[in-house]
């Protein structure tokens, strides 16, 4: 446990799957050598295999307090960073030359099953689920590291890997039930989301949050009773952790998704939910039922013209209100180390 904990709430009703967060993170953090295949931030279509492919079946985390075995995801399961055959084939008059990833037709990528989802037409269903490191209160990765290279900062609860101590044993990768840790084969170190620590330290929201055009992500300290995080997690109880049964106590929370009504056999609308509640319960636990009821009731209240603190909070008319104290613009931070190679995460 840290003294304080920063947290993030991700609103799945506002997420439009545009992956601007993914690109913001990619260009900010994971373009260094050995990191080309890393996606510290992903957005997956659910239901689906997710990233890495089939991560929910890879084990890790705890059950009844006991660490569970897990397996290492392979790079191909994260999606290979395809290179394209520009120089071979792109621009000639050869009618057979086709621009495509080098190394043959791919059969998996980090966003391969985008907009596919489940159900049967017209009762199809899907939604987007962005993921980063959950900066857990009980990090399975930290417990699994024999080098003690993983630590949780007291001042904000951000979980970091000290790369000076890391020897690349990858026990953390097995132990993390969310498979949010990556291995850098060039440096021989494990690496993961830093919660944009260098930005956050300067009062600038994480890149995935500030650059999100869907205004999906709330930031703040969990114990800040006036902040949106506290309201959504504790007061209204509409923000839920993903897979609470992994017992790591994530600090990223989700507003569960609403969906248009499903249809009966004739194609007429029913009162049935389109997304099977059992599926949502498998992701967010039983509390999702009440959370969805609350969201529907509050929306109905707004429709009747009644006030709703919950809806106002979720709308967040003033954009920077999403970010609590982390409301500065990166361009105004003179000394910000925006491009510091390789070493972030070691400075405690």
């Amino acid at each position: 446990m840290s003294d304080r904990q920063v947290a993030m709430v991700i609103d799945l009703n506002k997420c439009i799957g545009c992956q601007t967060c993914t690109i913001a993170c990619k260009t900010m953090w994971t373009s260094k050598e050995g990191m080309e295949g890393m996606w510290w931030n992903t957005v997956s279509t659910a239901p689906g295999e997710g990233t890495p492919k089939g991560w929910e079946q890879m084990g890790g985390g705890f059950r009844d307090g006991k660490a569970q075995p897990g397996r290492l995801p392979k790079q191909s399961e994260f999606g290979d960073p395809w290179e394209f055959n520009y120089e071979e084939t792109l621009f000639g008059g050869d009618p057979h030359a086709t621009l495509k990833p080098s190394g043959g037709d791919p059969d998996w990528g980090t966003n391969w099953d985008e907009d596919v989802g489940g159900g049967e037409y017209p009762n199809s269903f899907f939604f987007y689920i962005p993921r980063i490191c959950n900066h857990c209160t009980k990090p399975a990765c930290m417990e699994a590291c024999p080098r003690g290279a993983i630590f949780k900062r007291d001042e904000d609860g951000i979980v970091l890997i000290n790369e000076d101590h890391c020897r690349g044993f990858r026990f953390c990768q097995e132990a993390c039930p969310y498979k949010e840790i990556y291995y850098n084969a060039v440096t021989g170190k494990s690496q993961k989301c830093l919660f944009c620590l260098p930005r956050m330290e300067e009062g600038v929201a994480t890149a995935c949050s500030r650059q999100c055009p869907g205004r999906v992500r709330f930031l703040g300290f969990l114990d800040d009773e006036d902040g949106p995080i506290h309201k959504l997690v504790y007061d209204h109880k509409v923000a839920l952790p993903l897979h609470p049964e992994y017992e790591t106590e994530p600090n990223v929370f989700y507003i569960p998704p609403l969906a248009p009504p499903s249809f009966d056999a004739e194609g007429n609308p029913t009162e049935e939910d389109r997304i099977p509640i059992t599926y949502l319960m498998s992701l967010f636990g039983g509390e999702v039922v009440e959370a969805l009821e609350t969201l529907k009731a509050e929306k109905a209240a707004r429709k009747r013209g009644e006030p709703s603190e919950l809806m106002d909070t979720l709308i967040s008319r003033n954009w920077v209100d999403l970010f609590g104290p982390f409301n500065k613009s990166p361009k105004d931070i003179e000394a910000m180390r925006l491009m510091e190679g390789g070493q972030l995460g070691t400075a405690q």
Binding site: C18, Q19, T20, T22, I23, A24, T27, M28, A207, R210, Q211, C212, P213, R215, I315, S316, R317, N318, W319, V320, S329, P330, K331, L338
Partner: peptide, 24 residues
């Protein structure tokens, strides 16, 4: 690199502002 400037003014208190504007 580039990052959204996100300086659009809110028109009225009851309306969301346009920030941050941008896409992947």
């Amino acid at each position: 690199r580039e990052e959204q400037a996100a300086e659009y003014q809110q028109l009225r208190p009851e309306l969301p502002d346009m920030n941050p504007r941008g896409c992947q």
